[in-house]
Nucleic acid binder design. Structure first.
Lengths: 243, 243
DNA sequence: CCTGGGGCGTCCCTATAGGATCTGATCATG
DNA sequence: CATGATCAGATCCTATAGGGACGCCCCAGG
């Protein structure tokens, strides 16, 4: 936020803004990558609420970079559906909140995620299983307070669980399809309250998915994931604000 | 290509590069949009081959704009997987050509497109049916010469058919998921030769999908689409170059 | 002939300048 | 008081400049 106007960065780049070693030939990050990750984090953990304007110049000032990298980062984000652009008016955080949108999202998840679970099951190995177990442990131990922000770790673990399964399909296209949805899922979790209520049942369902995966039966894994998503949908509809 | 150095464009923009009326308040396009569509078209119709470098400055010179909008357009394209970026080396057209990649793509299509067909079936109306029929007519009447480029119209109609079905789900998330795949599908059609051989059978399958859709039975539509994609996969594997 | 070094061009990346446009407030008028 | 015009500031959009890295070609020396 407060940039303290250090004034030491114009030209010559005395310090690398991303924290990576500078001057090394390997994987020097570009400012646009840094901005992208910063914005994504703000979207995922709720600092940027739906409908809020994301000013190019303003973001550039906040992150102490020029507008050019910010523009590039926002262009990438736009394609994920997390922000929307209006031609000469700028970017806004996408407002996805109608119950129809939620139903649509669940429909899309039902098409993709059970398949992900089935494929991940066929490609499972001890290392990957350990990753999933770790995430489930994190999910169980995450604090669950009364407000949204206190669920941050819980929601993060939830998202990571699904993301891991998508990765473990070893299918870049399915991973890409999930990634396109994943951000929206997380935003629904945050602002729609999905998955917050009745977290105990949700944890049990995740455990069921993991059990099915480790059993080695792809059909069971697919069914467990489908059942989980259907339950998520039911719970959300049950205690959704009437709106 | 040849820019003829008109020199009339710096400032004041005497002509609108996109061809839209200038000065109208409605939807004035921005240069980055124009560049994006130009690059996308080049990718879809094969002018840009896999592995080819897409220079930022070079593209800017070709389209007679500054690098800034080109950079923005490429950032959007990167997120579709059609081009890849290496941190300080620039963009290249993504090379998707192994048989594993093809199998992965078909797996992803099998997850998404049958669901699209099922949902589109429940939301069908006369106007939409007419659109699909028109596309099928185009597909049948398109010339099919011996070289790739002579299949341009055929491939375009094929892509449009699937794209239409994705749109007709009225589900922005499924449409987005398909759009992420659609570009890759088209590139496989072009450079992998998928769908070229045995076009008659492919047309019959499209007809079957359309028949199932117009019958109003969602399950039949879903099955017909799944059968079509499996056939596409079989044909491609059958006559794929051994590589 | 072969090899190594320097110059040159190209390209990516970021910053900055300036024109065009939108928005919100102020103010005049019915 | 309500309504519409005007102006100022903020913002978006594009072009341009310049730094740093990489590759290529030419050429001198062995």
């Amino acid at each position: 936020m407060q940039k303290a106007s250090n004034g030491t960065r114009a030209g010559s780049r005395p310090e690398d803004p991303t924290g990576r070693k500078v001057g090394r030939t390997v994987s020097r990050q570009v400012l646009a990558d840094h901005v992208y990750e910063e914005l994504l984090a703000s979207l995922m953990d709720g600092r940027l609420e739906p409908g809020a304007a994301v000013s190019i110049d303003g973001t550039a000032r906040e992150l102490d970079v020029s507008p050019t990298p910010v523009r590039e980062a926002l262009a990438r984000l736009e394609h994920t559906g997390m922000v929307r652009r209006v031609a000469l008016k700028g970017y806004r955080v996408a407002p996805v909140f109608t119950r129809e949108d939620f139903a649509d999202l669940m429909e899309a998840r039902l098409a993709i995620e059970p398949v992900n679970a089935r494929l991940a099951c066929t490609r499972l190995n001890p290392h990957r299983l350990a990753e999933l177990e770790q995430t489930l442990t994190d999910l169980k131990s995450a604090p669950r307070g009364p407000s949204f922000v206190e669920y941050k770790d819980y929601l993060e673990a939830d998202e990571r669980f699904h993301q891991l399964i998508a990765q473990q399909t070893d299918n870049q296209f399915l991973l890409g399809a999930y990634a396109a949805l994943g951000g929206q899922v997380q935003r629904f979790r945050l602002f729609g309250g999905v998955g917050i209520t009745d977290a105990e049942n949700a944890i049990a369902e995740h455990q069921a998915v993991l059990d099915a995966l480790s059993s080695g039966d792809p059909e069971k894994a697919e069914a467990a994931m489908a059942a989980h998503i259907r339950k998520v949908r039911e719970r959300a509809i049950a205690d959704a604000p009437e709106e």
